[in-house]
Design a protein around this nucleic acid. Structure first.
Lengths: 136, 136
DNA sequence: GCTTGACCTTCCCATGGTTGGAAGCCTTAC
DNA sequence: GTAAGGCTTCCAACCATGGGAAGGTCAAGC
């Protein structure tokens, strides 16, 4: 099948399929005599695997490892589990950072009048003035 | 003062100061006769403002708006508050997505033996097989 | 006054993952 | 035969940041 059909079936855009091939995440696709990329059902499965891993936030580098483990019938589930756990730790670190921002901003926004007056704890905080004493 | 001193005082790297000037987030700095950028204390305060806003996850576009409000003595705190709330909503959306990934992966990893055997629910999930029936 | 080292300048490149577009070839349907 | 749509490659952009090269400038020490 053509790249468009493979894209539709796998959920990976044609653009990204070509990109994954270019960076070596997937092997070069077969070509028809006219130069079109030609995909088989297993190819589509592999693309779908990649798509699902991306949806779970795995980086391309991590996916390369996961694909290797997928293809390796003698793989140890411990290896897969370790990658997943490391990835979870990474995600949780990012969540914690974002949550800190949210907490700070919510606190500031809660003490901001939000009316026509210019006085604003959010701006004051960005200016560098401590807003803590405002805690009433 | 030179860009290096401004960088140290503001917490914004010299690279980024030049970049912010290039994209118009800050006005072009004064120059000495020899062409060095020359910064005043208010300049440093502005850079520090930007730095703090970045630390709270605001995009450069949002910061441009915040800087405008900062400079506007007739600003309405409602405008600042609205931007902050929108940003919080954006952050919370990103957190929710990451949290979904974490939840999924944790569930999968918890049911993965993590030993020398190849059987692995994480891989199965990426293959597309539903892992839900595994729920015991 | 000269050397040295630390600073500054501009310019280009790379990151990661994705999208967009342009120019040109191929296929399919009418 | 022609039109539409799919395919090819190549180039650029996003966002924010860092790295580095090549060359000019400044200040301190001798």
């Amino acid at each position: 099948m053509n790249i468009g059909a493979a894209a539709k079936l796998s959920g990976v855009s044609a653009k990204m399929i070509r990109y994954y091939e270019e960076i070596g995440l997937v092997p070069p696709a077969d070509r028809t005599t006219s130069g079109y990329r030609d995909y088989s059902t297993p190819d589509v499965h592999q693309l779908r695997f990649i798509r699902r891993a991306r949806d779970l936030g795995f980086s391309v580098a991590e996916i390369a490892t996961l694909l290797g483990l997928w293809r390796d019938r003698t793989r140890q589930s411990a290896d897969v589990k370790r990658i997943a756990r490391e990835h979870v730790a990474d995600l949780e670190g990012r969540i914690a950072k974002l949550q800190d921002m949210v907490d700070t901003l919510k606190t500031l926004a809660d003490t901001c009048h939000g009316d026509e007056r210019p006085e604003c704890p959010i701006i004051r905080r960005l200016e560098g003035e401590s807003v803590a004493p405002e805690v009433r």
